[in-house]
Design a protein around this nucleic acid. Sequence first.
DNA 1: TGCCTCAATTGGTTGGACCATTGGGCCAAT
DNA 2: ATTGGCCCAATGGTCCAACCAATTGAGGCA
Lengths: 248, 248
Amino acid sequence: MTGSVLLPVQTASRDDAVLQALVDFVTGEALNPGDRLPTERLLAEHLKVSRTTVREALTRWQELGLVERRQGSGTYLKAVVTRNMLHMPLTLPSGNDFNSLMHTLEIRRGLEAEAAVLCAERANDADLALIEHKLIVMEEAFHVRHGMSADEDWDFHLAVFRTSGNPLFEQIIAAMYEMFHRFWEHPLGVRDFGHASFPYHRTLFNAIAARDPVAARAEALKLIATVEDDLRRGAANLKKQNKSRAAE
Amino acid sequence: MTGSVLLPVQTASRDDAVLQALVDFVTGEALNPGDRLPTERLLAEHLKVSRTTVREALTRWQELGLVERRQGSGTYLKAVVTRNMLHMPLTLPSGNDFNSLMHTLEIRRGLEAEAAVLCAERANDADLALIEHKLIVMEEAFHVRHGMSADEDWDFHLAVFRTSGNPLFEQIIAAMYEMFHRFWEHPLGVRDFGHASFPYHRTLFNAIAARDPVAARAEALKLIATVEDDLRRGAANLKKQNKSRAAE
DNA sequence: TGCCTCAATTGGTTGGACCATTGGGCCAAT
DNA sequence: ATTGGCCCAATGGTCCAACCAATTGAGGCA
């Protein structure tokens, strides 16, 4: 009896190999997003596999958003393809209810706080200048429009994430933003959505500028908390509306 | 000229329709994760489409992690399927270097702490019993093998994430784990990798069982910290090896 | 020049065949 | 009664050859 463990044998399926070969081809030819891939028939011939197998592989890339297929035209690259890509399929069951929206905020709560910490630890003077600039732009937009401006707000947060030195923050939180806003075209009766978060942008910046990770985390959490409050108010509004509508 | 709007012709490709029909079937039959779906041949016959089309649809579900196929056995549901699911597959480039791995740990630091908090707040007695069971299984495996066992370890954390009530934790952290495991297969000189994290599994459970969110966060952070230490040690080992090899 | 037509190209679908793996049932040996 | 080997039906994986449907561009025509 040895302490060793029996590992299952490697059985990489065929279309995995096709995908790998495709990665090699795309990187080898230095293809960029927008470029056209070879015909399915050509790929099948060159890779010595059937067209069916090529199609299964391409279907998987399509589902990941790496590629777009246009009947009669061809298959086009939609994103940069590299070896060692990290696939993260996210799916929310019934993504338009209050709970699902709140779930995206719970992720943001964890990640934005962590990003703020890293940002405060790692920001150099140039980073700070950029973040402050984004902050000022956002504040000006706020005063002009008497309300939060989604783009300028996002730009500010983006600068924070990038300064954290970890590209995953930007990618994942961007996905959360998009999930959130896909069902938030017009706020659920909350006219000044996001209004309450405004002052915490500056306090967050101050904490970062002071290189105070603990304070930065605290301010980031306060900021998210205001968004969660807004969401709860919106849900309450919606409930009221439904009730009065049902009473008719 | 009427005021009506010209909607694009029903362009939902065939396998989109198949997917929709599958959703109806799964919800109608009240299938749960782990249950087996009908044969591809049966589905093709009932839906009046070719088996190829059914396969393309199932391939997409597989890529989203909704379903798992086992040759010779069948196709099994892996997650809850509902109408109005919101999919957002996220794929990002990343390498197998030290920095990339550390980035995944920074994400885990933020998310596992948050998940532990939510878990401590929301766990009921049944949840606690399940988590404790996974913990015991993991501890037994540890004593038998004199080291951490990846599967049992993951099962424990999975139970925590699921109890948090937010499916996004599991999905995001699963991707982080996968990236880590890709690297783990080439052991980097650290024979007892993960060893130090062992005791914190029980302390984490104790905090959750005591419904103490603050303590749960603290224990989760300690656990991740040990993994970060292991990774740093591994990176140092690797560096040393390279240096001595270069000196030959 | 500008428009139309048509044929080649390309992804989408089909039916049918065969391969590889799985899992259960059966049976002989222990 | 249990173990191990064997077979076989069911199931996902791959392949082929043909046809359908959308797109594109070249060539013809007014």
